[in-house]
Structure formats: C-alpha cells, structure tokens
Design a binder for these strands. Structure first.
Lengths: 343, 343
DNA sequence: TTCATAAATTTACGCGCGTAAAGTAATTTG
DNA sequence: CAAATTACTTTACGCGCGTAAATTTATGAA
C-alpha cells in the first residue's frame, strides 16, 4: 500500500523488476514461472495490490474464466440452495460464477443466455425452466457453449444432464407410504412448469400398479411458480370435496405440500403419521423449509451435494478437454427418504 | 441471418454503409444519430444480429453499464424477493445487474466487493451482512464506488441508506397486539446477525413503556443464518419452561416466528387469535412463506416495492450526477400490518 | 441559390493485456 | 567447464472499441 497506485501491468512489471510478458504469464498460471521470479512478483503484489484489468484480459483470451449459472427461479429456496452449492464449487475451481435467474419467464431465460453469450463464458450450468422454455434457443446455445443441464431435463436438449432420480425417489416414497399406512393419492399441478413432475406421476402410477393398487391422481389448477398458493387452493378444494380415496397424500413437491398442509390446517384436519391423525401428507425435494412445517414434512431429499459436484465436475471437464460428447450423457442421483412427522 | 458472421464493429459498419464511429455513437445512444442513419443501422441489425463486444466496450468507457447488487443471504427468500425486484428495475434503467450473495460470510462479502471493483460498476446496491460485516472495508468501498446501502443500516457507513422503518412498524404491531389481546413478549436472537433486530427490540421496549406495560424480552441462543432452527429451539425451550409472561409472542422476524410456530405445534399448543387458542404469535417482514404457515402468520410487511424503487432511483441519480451527497441521506418506508390467523 | 448549422466521415490514437518471435541470461546436465 | 536446456527479456503486433480533431456532406432556413 505504500507505493503509489499501479495503473496497469506495465507499471507493475517495472516495480517488480520483471518483464511484462512474464508477469502476464504469472497471472495466467503462477506455477509457470521460476520460483524465484514468482516470489519477486508476490512480494511486490503484497505492497500494491494490483490486479489485471478483467476486461482487457477477457478481450484477448479466447476463453474467459467465466462460468454462467442459470436457474429458473431464484426466489425458490430450493434453487437458491442448489445455486449456492454450485457457485461455491465453481469458485473453488478458480472460475468466476455469474448467477442469473429467469424468474419463471421463458423470454428472460433466453435473454439470460444471450447475455451470457456476450461474456464468452468458458462453460454454463443451466437449470432450464422446462415446459415453457424455448427449446430451440436452448438447443442452439448448448451447441455453441459447453453447457451442463441440471435439475430439469428437457428431453434431447444439450449434451449432458445431471439431476435427481425422480423414478427411484418416487418409488421409495410410495413403498414407504404403503407399508406404513394407507396407499397414497398423488397430488400435483395439472400443468406443472417443471418436467420432473411428469416423471414423478408416471413413477407413482407404475409403482402403484406394481403393488396391485389403484392409483389416484388429483391435479390442481393454476399456472406459474406460486406453488404454495396452488397447493393451498387445490388442496383445500380436494379436502372439502372429499375426493381423496385414502387418508394419505403424496405431493409432487414440497412447495405444493406446504400449501396443502396450510389447507388441511385451516380445515382443522390433524395431519401426521401418529395415532389420532386423519391425514398423512408427504412431499418431495427436501425443501429447506420442509423441516419447519406443521407438522414437519416427510419428504425425499435430492442428493444436493452430489448433483452440484457432478455438474461442476462435468462442465470443468468439458472446458478442459474442449471436446463434445458423442452421445447424450445422463447422470441421476438417488433420493433419500426423510421420515418426519407428517407421514 | 443471411449475411455471414460479423466479427466486429468495423465489418458491421461496412455492411451498413455507415462509418464505424457513427455506429459506435448509435450503440451508445440510438437517439444521437440522424433518423435516416439510425434506420439504416437497424435494418442491417435485423439481418445479422451483431452486438458490440462487451469487454472492449467496458475497457474503453470510464463508466460501465454494470450495477452490482450484493445481498447477505440469497437462500433467504426475503432477500431473493428483494433482489428480484431490484434486478428488474435495474434492467429497466438499461443497466446490467450483477447479483452476488455473501452467503452469510463476511469474508465473502468483502470478496464480492473486490470482485465488483474489478468490473468497474457504475453503481452498487449493497445490503450488508450487518454486525459481522467488515465495516472498514465497506466504508472504503462506498468511498470509491457510488453505493446505496439498503435493508440493513450500518451506522455511519456509506452516503445513502434506504430501508424499512423498524421503529414505526414495531410500534404498530405492539399497538395492535395490545388492543386485541394480551400484551406481547418480544422474542429474538441474543446475537442477531442483522442490525434491524436491535432497532426492533428498542422500539418494542419503548412502546411498551409508553403504554405503561412491562416489557419482556426472551433471547434465543444461536449464531448464523439458520433462523428457523434458532427460533424452533429457543421457542421450544421458552414454551416448555413457561417463561412467557403473557400468551402473546412478537417475534423479531418471520423466520424466527416460523421456527417458533413449529415448536408450538410440536408441543400441541393451539396458536391463533381465535377463541380457544392458548397462544398468539406474530412476526415481522411479511416473508414470502408467512402466508403458508400453520396458522397463517400475522406480520408486518416491508414496503418492498418502495424500498426497491427508491434504492434503484437513488443509485441512478448518483450515477448520473456523479456527485456525492454532502451528508448522509436516510430513507425509511413505513411497514404495513398484515393481519392473519396467528395473532 | 446561399449560407449557417448539424451530422457523418476520415484519420488517428489509446485502452490494458495476450501472445508470438528472436535474442539473452540463468540453470541444469554430463 | 562446456553444452544443452529452460526461463526470461525485448520487441512488436493485435484484440474491439471509445473518442477526439479535422474535414466533408447533408439539412433547413433565408
């Protein structure tokens, strides 16, 4: 801090007594210079905190150190949590994460991708909106930029997908619910924004049939991402109309379940797996808030850490190798049953 | 799309039949060129979708079009919601928002500011961590970059603060609770991460005394941002030990209240303002999930839209004028009582 | 038509850094 | 100690654009 302001690498090089190209080399990879020069540079660095101009650097490199992270809806703590883990891993790899949320809007999703294109990212981690997404636009983007799709799998789009094993997870929950009480009714949105929902319904029906049980699916009306509200309204109606064939409800995701629980509470129905309860409610996702519902929500957890780690690992591999995979690679991690009080 | 790839402004200018400097002028302000030339450029733009290289642009401009947004904890839907609104307004102003979360970590907060410095933002909207923040580092940053502090006011740091009127909001809630039942006990963290908490406690005590009532403050142990967990544990203990002087609890914020409600539910205490309830619980913030607690949470809403609008408006004014305010400017928006079932 | 003014063009330089080529110095090897 | 290798220095160019100065052209009113 004692030395005057350093304006550019030229001045810094002069101060450290090393030539500018060598200094440039150092900043691209400190290991690539001789230990003695490295030490000189780092000693100088301590007393004047110079940092290369990020714009000039990125202008001249073909590949930046930027990694885009796009999630469909950041105000959903589920995605916030996933993004947080991914972000941390990206930083650990020495890259700069750029976090963007599509706020549930397909147009904004495309804008986000265009915006990322402009900063020439080395790679991108994309959790697409799903049904509403502009598939063609995403396809084009994946063709141009090394992209790992995660969480939400749009069939046939992109080279790589990393996500949750919806089929396995759903089967585990249905098995548990059947063994521990009455078989579950499946509660979902009629038009879910996320393709995971369809896989869950299909797995539910298949598991029920395998067990020789009659599946029942109840679909709530409503568009958009206000899932609690949709779960609340649809749940209230279903309960009032007594449309449930059994006393057990398996919600397609935790946010719907949170709404459903609110509805049950209002109707003064006691929820839980304990004696004297009239209703069991289970969810799916292990949403950060599912531990604090009343009663605490029985659910299935994503393997958050594995999904985040594999996604980042994969995009890093794509970046380093520069290759594209011959065929589509899909990785799915099993979910884990979280038994709490609600079912 | 018919024309081949345009590599730079030079080629684009040639294609449109306009000189490069004029094209450059157009991109900085389309209104600044003659309508006829503007039309020519825009016609060319339609058939080859060229966009100026963002790095080259930012390298040469003294002021970029970047606006940093830093929040303490993005996985908290409260901040996610606030960030979403701010982001939208920043885009509407024609700037590029860069959203960063400090994930509750003071070191990361400082890193985020350093990272922002590197991209020469025109302005920054900063919601600091609060107590844990490195005040000196933030102070230095505010001195260098036009910065609006929002949500969390660190006394004396920065030129501008926009936030919630904790004193007014707390008073309104205490008044309401006193008029509608027994006076409230205040429930908070012993070491809250956020300075708003202190203002709320002080206002609670003052209001109680003004009303001639005995204030009672119960403080939950625990560090960090897992507020629901802290509220749950502290609430459970307070309820079991029967430490509440009255049947009414005013939680310092909704996340604590969510935990408190979970504790009350587990202890089979009926919560609500209705007949036959043993406990009333109120919160503060109108957290996105407070509508779906059991029972639905009575709380006080921030004026989210006003805070977001004023913050963005202020930073834009600082950017355009280039001036610094002579003295510290503080704007606080009143909260609004949201009466729901819990109190 | 003429002139004053506004707008575009030409020319030129600079931003801060990556990077290549050729030469020089330091280090390692035998 | 000389030769071979490696690391560094010098020099030079380019990236894509902002921007200033001087010149030319277009616009509109007199």
């Amino acid at each position: 801090m004692s030395t005057p302001k350093i304006r550019n690498m030229e001045e810094f090089a002069a101060l450290s007594g090393i030539s500018r190209p060598t200094v440039s080399k150092y900043f691209n990879d400190p290991e690539s210079v001789r230990p003695s020069t490295r030490e000189k540079i780092e000693r100088t660095l301590e007393q004047c905190d110079y940092r290369p101009n990020i714009f000039a650097v990125n202008q001249n490199r073909k590949l930046t150190k930027n990694v885009g992270i796009v999630v469909p809806y950041l105000a959903d703590p589920f995605f916030a949590e996933l993004a947080r883990r991914v972000e941390t891993l990206v930083i650990a790899e020495g890259f700069r994460p750029i976090l963007l949320s599509s706020h549930g809007d397909p147009a904004l999703e495309v804008e986000n991708l265009e915006s990322l294109r402009a900063i020439k990212p080395a790679g991108v981690l994309l959790a697409p909106l799903g049904r509403a997404s502009d598939h063609a636009a995403i396809e084009r983007f994946c063709a141009d930029v090394p992209t790992v799709n995660f969480d939400s799998n749009i069939e046939g789009v992109g080279d790589v997908f990393v996500g949750h094993n919806n089929a396995q997870a759903t089967t585990v929950m249905v098995d548990y619910l059947v063994r521990s009480g009455e078989p579950p009714v499946f509660f979902e949105m009629r038009t879910p924004p996320n393709p995971n929902a369809n896989k869950r319904r299909i797995a539910y029906v298949a598991t029920m049939e395998r067990l020789g049980l009659e599946p029942q699916v109840i679909q709530a009306e409503g568009e958009g991402w206000e899932l609690e509200e949709i779960g609340y309204r649809g749940g209230r109606r279903a309960l009032q109309d007594r449309r449930l064939a059994t006393n057990t409800v398996f919600c397609s995701n935790d946010r719907l379940a949170i709404g459903f629980l609110a509805a049950a509470y209002e109707l003064e129905m006691k929820v839980g797996h304990a004696e004297g309860c009239e209703l069991r409610v289970a969810g799916h996702d292990n949403h950060p808030f599912s531990r604090f519902t009343c009663p605490m929500l029985t659910t299935i957890s994503h393997n958050y850490s594995a999904i985040a780690a594999k996604s980042v690992e994969t995009v890093m591999h794509m970046i380093e190798s520069g290759e594209r995979l011959a065929e589509r690679q899909i990785t799915q991690f099993d979910g884990e049953l979280i038994m709490r009080a609600s079912a």
